[in-house]
Amino acid sequence: MKTALAAFFTGALFGIGLILSGMTNPAKVQGFLDLFGQWDPSLALVMGGAIIVGLFAFARGRRMQRSLLDLPMYALKKRHIDKRLVLGSLAFGVGWGLSGFCPGPAIVWLGTGDAKTAVFVLAMAGGMALFELLQPRAK
């Protein structure tokens, strides 16, 4: 029960952070990605703010055997840099730039009932489903 509540409230807090930061506004995201035009550096501060907190948390997490709710600490097994990582990330960036949406803010903004956001999220879920079909054992 505690773990379920933790998951729900961390999700909600994450979403509120995204709204406050400005990342749920695709025009603002594209303003950040418009390095060669009128550049809005705001999103660098979003990442900076998140990483400052994250650095402490991940340094702490690394030294823990069990989580604070007594669960196994999920260890990231993948360490290598390969073609999949690079090509996948390059493709993601094209979609991000084209729409101004990355997965988190799109899911948050879906909660407003906006039609354009719903179309993006459906296509994104479709792309993920396609991945599952093409890579059935890649987890």
Partner: peptide, 9 residues
């Protein structure tokens, strides 16, 4: 864009 983001990520 959605397809690229879904597949790419």
């Amino acid at each position: 864009a959605g397809l690229l983001v879904g597949l790419g990520t």
